[in-house]
Simulated assay, not measured.
Amino acid sequence: MNTIHVVKEIYIYPIKSLAGISCQNAKAEEMGFENDRRWMLLDAENQMITQREYPIMSQFYPQISDGKISISFKDQKHEFSTTEHLDIPIKVNVWDDQSEVVEVNFATSKWFSEQLGFECKLVKIMKNGDRKHESSRLKETFNVSLADGYPYLLIGTESLDFLNEKLEEKITIKRFRPNIVISTQKEHEEDDLDTFKIGEVQFKNVKPCGRCIMVNNDPQKGIVKKEPLKTLSKYRNVNNSVLFGTNIVSLNSGVISIGDEVVF
Protein backbone atom coordinates (compact mmCIF):
# COMPACT_ATOMS: atom_id res chain seq x y z
CA MET A 1 0.00 0.00 0.00
CA ASN A 2 1.58 3.23 -1.16
CA THR A 3 -1.18 5.59 -0.12
CA ILE A 4 -1.11 7.45 3.16
CA HIS A 5 -3.36 6.02 5.85
CA VAL A 6 -3.97 8.00 9.02
CA VAL A 7 -5.85 7.48 12.26
CA LYS A 8 -9.22 9.23 12.06
CA GLU A 9 -10.89 8.11 15.31
CA ILE A 10 -9.96 6.39 18.57
CA TYR A 11 -12.44 4.89 21.03
CA ILE A 12 -12.31 3.15 24.39
CA TYR A 13 -15.18 1.31 26.09
CA PRO A 14 -14.37 1.29 29.80
CA ILE A 15 -17.32 -0.93 30.76
CA LYS A 16 -18.05 -3.81 28.42
CA SER A 17 -21.19 -3.20 26.31
CA LEU A 18 -21.80 0.33 27.59
CA ALA A 19 -21.27 3.36 25.34
CA GLY A 20 -17.76 4.29 24.31
CA ILE A 21 -15.58 7.37 24.72
CA SER A 22 -14.03 9.19 21.76
CA CYS A 23 -10.36 10.00 22.46
CA GLN A 24 -7.72 12.22 20.90
CA ASN A 25 -5.05 9.75 21.97
CA ALA A 26 -4.79 6.52 23.91
CA LYS A 27 -2.14 4.40 25.54
CA ALA A 28 -1.86 0.97 23.94
CA GLU A 29 -1.13 -1.98 26.22
CA GLU A 30 -1.08 -5.72 25.63
CA MET A 31 -4.61 -6.07 27.02
CA GLY A 32 -5.94 -3.21 24.90
CA PHE A 33 -6.05 0.54 25.37
CA GLU A 34 -5.66 1.77 28.95
CA ASN A 35 -9.06 1.59 30.68
CA ASP A 36 -10.67 -0.16 27.72
CA ARG A 37 -13.08 -2.91 28.81
CA ARG A 38 -11.44 -3.35 32.18
CA TRP A 39 -14.93 -3.44 33.76
CA MET A 40 -18.11 -5.38 32.99
CA LEU A 41 -21.49 -6.18 34.47
CA LEU A 42 -22.45 -9.61 35.81
CA ASP A 43 -25.90 -10.92 36.63
CA ALA A 44 -26.85 -12.73 39.85
CA GLU A 45 -25.33 -15.97 38.49
CA ASN A 46 -22.05 -14.19 37.61
CA GLN A 47 -22.78 -14.40 33.89
CA MET A 48 -21.64 -11.45 31.76
CA ILE A 49 -24.31 -8.96 30.66
CA THR A 50 -24.17 -7.39 27.19
CA GLN A 51 -26.24 -5.39 24.73
CA ARG A 52 -27.14 -8.64 22.99
CA GLU A 53 -29.66 -9.33 25.74
CA TYR A 54 -30.12 -5.77 27.01
CA PRO A 55 -29.90 -3.18 24.19
CA ILE A 56 -30.61 -0.40 26.70
CA MET A 57 -27.00 -0.74 27.89
CA SER A 58 -25.99 1.48 24.97
CA GLN A 59 -27.73 4.33 26.83
CA PHE A 60 -25.22 4.30 29.71
CA TYR A 61 -22.56 6.92 28.92
CA PRO A 62 -19.20 6.79 30.76
CA GLN A 63 -16.63 9.54 31.13
CA ILE A 64 -13.20 9.35 32.77
CA SER A 65 -11.67 12.32 34.58
CA ASP A 66 -9.25 12.71 37.49
CA GLY A 67 -9.10 8.99 38.16
CA LYS A 68 -12.86 8.59 38.34
CA ILE A 69 -15.45 7.07 36.01
CA SER A 70 -18.82 8.79 35.92
CA ILE A 71 -21.81 7.06 34.32
CA SER A 72 -24.84 8.92 32.99
CA PHE A 73 -28.11 7.10 32.30
CA LYS A 74 -31.22 9.15 31.52
CA ASP A 75 -31.33 11.68 34.39
CA GLN A 76 -29.25 9.53 36.76
CA LYS A 77 -25.51 9.70 37.44
CA HIS A 78 -23.06 7.59 39.38
CA GLU A 79 -19.32 7.84 39.99
CA PHE A 80 -16.59 5.53 41.22
CA SER A 81 -12.80 5.51 41.32
CA THR A 82 -10.83 3.62 38.68
CA THR A 83 -8.72 2.09 41.44
CA GLU A 84 -11.36 0.96 43.96
CA HIS A 85 -12.35 -2.67 44.31
CA LEU A 86 -13.25 -5.34 46.82
CA ASP A 87 -10.78 -8.11 47.59
CA ILE A 88 -12.83 -11.24 46.91
CA PRO A 89 -11.91 -12.83 43.55
CA ILE A 90 -14.72 -14.00 41.27
CA LYS A 91 -14.24 -16.60 38.53
CA VAL A 92 -16.16 -15.69 35.37
CA ASN A 93 -16.27 -16.67 31.73
CA VAL A 94 -15.98 -14.29 28.82
CA TRP A 95 -17.20 -16.64 26.11
CA ASP A 96 -14.75 -19.57 26.23
CA ASP A 97 -12.12 -17.81 28.35
CA GLN A 98 -12.02 -17.97 32.13
CA SER A 99 -11.11 -14.75 33.89
CA GLU A 100 -10.60 -13.59 37.43
CA VAL A 101 -12.33 -10.34 38.41
CA VAL A 102 -13.31 -8.44 41.54
CA GLU A 103 -16.40 -6.40 42.36
CA VAL A 104 -15.87 -2.62 42.34
CA ASN A 105 -18.07 -1.79 45.35
CA PHE A 106 -21.55 -2.54 46.64
CA ALA A 107 -22.92 0.96 45.99
CA THR A 108 -22.02 0.84 42.30
CA SER A 109 -23.52 -2.62 41.89
CA LYS A 110 -26.71 -1.41 43.60
CA TRP A 111 -26.92 1.62 41.29
CA PHE A 112 -26.65 -0.50 38.14
CA SER A 113 -29.17 -2.98 39.57
CA GLU A 114 -31.66 -0.17 40.16
CA GLN A 115 -31.22 1.29 36.67
CA LEU A 116 -31.44 -2.04 34.85
CA GLY A 117 -34.20 -3.47 37.03
CA PHE A 118 -32.48 -6.69 38.06
CA GLU A 119 -29.65 -7.78 40.34
CA CYS A 120 -26.21 -7.23 38.86
CA LYS A 121 -22.73 -6.22 39.90
CA LEU A 122 -19.91 -4.25 38.32
CA VAL A 123 -16.58 -6.09 38.28
CA LYS A 124 -13.06 -5.24 37.20
CA ILE A 125 -10.19 -7.24 35.75
CA MET A 126 -7.19 -6.36 37.84
CA LYS A 127 -4.04 -7.23 35.96
CA ASN A 128 -2.41 -8.52 32.82
CA GLY A 129 -2.75 -12.30 32.76
CA ASP A 130 -6.08 -12.54 34.59
CA ARG A 131 -7.62 -13.55 31.26
CA LYS A 132 -5.92 -15.36 28.42
CA HIS A 133 -7.31 -15.87 24.91
CA GLU A 134 -5.93 -18.42 22.49
CA SER A 135 -5.80 -17.51 18.81
CA SER A 136 -6.35 -20.66 16.77
CA ARG A 137 -5.28 -18.75 13.69
CA LEU A 138 -1.93 -17.56 15.05
CA LYS A 139 -1.44 -20.49 17.44
CA GLU A 140 -0.62 -17.95 20.14
CA THR A 141 -2.12 -17.04 23.51
CA PHE A 142 -2.75 -13.40 24.34
CA ASN A 143 -3.42 -11.57 27.58
CA VAL A 144 -6.66 -9.70 26.94
CA SER A 145 -9.14 -7.51 28.77
CA LEU A 146 -12.88 -8.24 29.03
CA ALA A 147 -13.41 -7.58 25.31
CA ASP A 148 -15.14 -10.33 23.36
CA GLY A 149 -11.98 -11.86 21.97
CA TYR A 150 -9.09 -9.59 21.05
CA PRO A 151 -7.66 -6.39 22.50
CA TYR A 152 -8.32 -4.09 19.52
CA LEU A 153 -10.76 -3.71 16.65
CA LEU A 154 -9.69 -1.68 13.62
CA ILE A 155 -11.97 -0.46 10.81
CA GLY A 156 -11.21 1.42 7.59
CA THR A 157 -13.32 4.43 6.57
CA GLU A 158 -14.09 3.01 3.13
CA SER A 159 -15.67 -0.10 4.64
CA LEU A 160 -18.36 2.00 6.30
CA ASP A 161 -18.82 4.22 3.24
CA PHE A 162 -19.25 1.16 1.03
CA LEU A 163 -21.86 -0.27 3.40
CA ASN A 164 -23.74 3.02 3.71
CA GLU A 165 -24.09 3.18 -0.07
CA LYS A 166 -26.25 0.06 0.23
CA LEU A 167 -28.32 1.14 3.25
CA GLU A 168 -31.47 3.25 3.12
CA GLU A 169 -30.87 4.48 6.67
CA LYS A 170 -27.21 5.50 7.01
CA ILE A 171 -25.32 4.48 10.14
CA THR A 172 -22.21 5.68 11.91
CA ILE A 173 -19.07 3.79 12.80
CA LYS A 174 -20.30 3.59 16.41
CA ARG A 175 -22.51 0.64 15.43
CA PHE A 176 -19.35 -1.47 15.13
CA ARG A 177 -17.59 -0.31 18.31
CA PRO A 178 -14.08 0.07 16.86
CA ASN A 179 -11.02 1.05 18.84
CA ILE A 180 -9.19 2.51 15.86
CA VAL A 181 -10.60 3.95 12.62
CA ILE A 182 -8.13 4.61 9.81
CA SER A 183 -8.54 6.32 6.46
CA THR A 184 -8.50 3.79 3.63
CA GLN A 185 -8.73 3.82 -0.15
CA LYS A 186 -10.67 0.60 -0.66
CA GLU A 187 -13.40 -1.17 1.27
CA HIS A 188 -12.23 -3.86 3.69
CA GLU A 189 -8.55 -3.46 2.88
CA GLU A 190 -7.94 -3.67 6.61
CA ASP A 191 -8.68 -7.40 6.35
CA ASP A 192 -5.39 -7.93 4.55
CA LEU A 193 -3.10 -5.99 6.87
CA ASP A 194 -0.13 -7.82 8.37
CA THR A 195 2.05 -5.82 10.77
CA PHE A 196 2.03 -2.04 10.85
CA LYS A 197 3.00 0.85 13.13
CA ILE A 198 0.94 3.72 14.48
CA GLY A 199 2.72 6.32 16.59
CA GLU A 200 4.92 4.41 19.04
CA VAL A 201 3.09 1.13 18.65
CA GLN A 202 3.57 -1.90 16.42
CA PHE A 203 0.36 -3.80 15.70
CA LYS A 204 -0.32 -7.18 14.14
CA ASN A 205 -3.49 -8.22 12.36
CA VAL A 206 -5.05 -11.43 13.67
CA LYS A 207 -8.22 -11.96 11.65
CA PRO A 208 -11.31 -10.20 10.30
CA CYS A 209 -14.00 -9.77 12.94
CA GLY A 210 -17.20 -11.82 12.78
CA ARG A 211 -20.17 -9.68 13.78
CA CYS A 212 -23.25 -10.50 15.86
CA ILE A 213 -26.73 -9.08 16.38
CA MET A 214 -25.28 -6.31 18.54
CA VAL A 215 -24.41 -4.19 15.47
CA ASN A 216 -28.16 -3.97 14.77
CA ASN A 217 -28.69 -2.04 18.01
CA ASP A 218 -29.03 1.66 17.27
CA PRO A 219 -26.71 2.97 20.02
CA GLN A 220 -28.44 6.33 20.28
CA LYS A 221 -31.87 4.80 20.86
CA GLY A 222 -31.22 1.34 22.30
CA ILE A 223 -33.48 -0.18 19.65
CA VAL A 224 -32.56 -3.31 17.68
CA LYS A 225 -33.20 -3.09 13.95
CA LYS A 226 -32.68 -5.43 10.97
CA GLU A 227 -29.72 -3.53 9.58
CA PRO A 228 -26.83 -3.55 8.94
CA LEU A 229 -26.49 -7.34 9.40
CA LYS A 230 -29.14 -8.04 6.76
CA THR A 231 -27.22 -6.14 4.08
CA LEU A 232 -23.77 -7.19 5.27
CA SER A 233 -24.75 -10.85 5.11
CA LYS A 234 -25.31 -10.50 1.38
CA TYR A 235 -21.70 -9.62 0.58
CA ARG A 236 -19.59 -10.22 3.70
CA ASN A 237 -20.66 -13.72 4.71
CA VAL A 238 -17.63 -15.99 4.90
CA ASN A 239 -18.07 -19.50 6.32
CA ASN A 240 -21.31 -18.44 8.01
CA SER A 241 -19.64 -15.46 9.68
CA VAL A 242 -20.50 -11.88 8.72
CA LEU A 243 -17.22 -9.94 8.69
CA PHE A 244 -16.65 -6.24 9.33
CA GLY A 245 -13.43 -4.74 10.67
CA THR A 246 -10.42 -6.71 11.82
CA ASN A 247 -9.04 -7.89 15.15
CA ILE A 248 -5.50 -6.74 15.95
CA VAL A 249 -3.00 -7.03 18.80
CA SER A 250 -0.24 -4.66 19.92
CA LEU A 251 3.32 -5.91 20.02
CA ASN A 252 4.50 -3.20 22.44
CA SER A 253 3.13 -0.41 24.62
CA GLY A 254 2.93 3.23 23.63
CA VAL A 255 0.67 6.12 22.71
CA ILE A 256 -1.23 6.59 19.47
CA SER A 257 -3.08 9.76 18.45
CA ILE A 258 -5.60 10.95 15.92
CA GLY A 259 -3.68 12.06 12.84
CA ASP A 260 -0.89 9.50 13.24
CA GLU A 261 0.20 7.90 10.01
CA VAL A 262 -0.23 4.14 9.62
CA VAL A 263 3.15 2.82 8.50
CA PHE A 264 3.31 -0.55 6.74
Rank of each mutant, 00 (worst) to 15 (best):
T50E: 00
I49P: 00
I155T: 06
D161S: 14
V206P: 01
N179L: 03
K225C: 10
A44E: 15
Y152R: 05
E53Y: 11
R52H: 07
S233P: 09
I171A: 06
N25V: 01
C209N: 01
K16T: 08
K234W: 08
K221D: 13
S183T: 14
D260Q: 01
A147C: 04
A19C: 05
N239F: 13
N35P: 00
S136A: 15
V255C: 12
C23H: 00
M214Y: 03
Y150M: 15
E190F: 01
D161R: 12
I171M: 04
I180W: 07
T246P: 04
L18V: 06
D43H: 02
V7R: 00
N239G: 11
S250T: 09
D218L: 03
I173R: 11
Q98Y: 09
V123G: 02
F196T: 13
C120V: 02
F118T: 02
F203H: 04
I182N: 00
I64N: 01
V123Q: 05
I90M: 08
I21K: 00
L167T: 09
L160A: 01
D260C: 07
L153Y: 05
K186M: 11
P89E: 09
P178T: 09
T231V: 14
C212N: 12
L18Q: 06
R38V: 11
D148R: 04
R177L: 07
L18S: 07
I180F: 08
N35A: 10
S58G: 04
Y235L: 13
E34G: 06
L41E: 04
P55T: 00
Y61C: 12
I155V: 12
F60K: 06
I90F: 05
Q76R: 12
S113C: 09
N105C: 04
K186I: 09
R236Y: 04
I21Y: 02
G259N: 13
S81V: 05
L163M: 10
E9R: 02
I155N: 03
R37F: 10
T108R: 04
L153M: 13
R38N: 10
N143W: 09
V94M: 12
P89A: 08
I49Q: 00
G67V: 02
S250I: 03
G129S: 06
L122M: 07
E103N: 07
A19H: 09
P208I: 07
Q24Y: 11
V94E: 03
K234V: 13
V238K: 15
K226C: 06
Y235C: 12
V215M: 01
Q63G: 12
K132D: 09
L154G: 00
G222F: 06
V102I: 10
R211K: 10
I21D: 01
I15Y: 00
Y11E: 04
I155Y: 02
E134A: 15
R137T: 15
K207D: 14
K8M: 12
S253L: 05
E169D: 14
L138Y: 07
T3H: 14
Q51E: 12
N25F: 11
I4G: 06
N240S: 15
T231I: 13
G20W: 03
N164Q: 07
I213R: 15
S81H: 09
P151C: 10
P62A: 08
E29R: 13
G156T: 02
E114V: 12
L41R: 01
D194K: 15
S145G: 05
E140N: 12
F118M: 08
M48E: 10
R38D: 09
Y152L: 08
I125P: 01
C120D: 00
L42V: 12
S135W: 13
V242K: 08
V101F: 01
F118N: 04
T83C: 07
I182W: 00
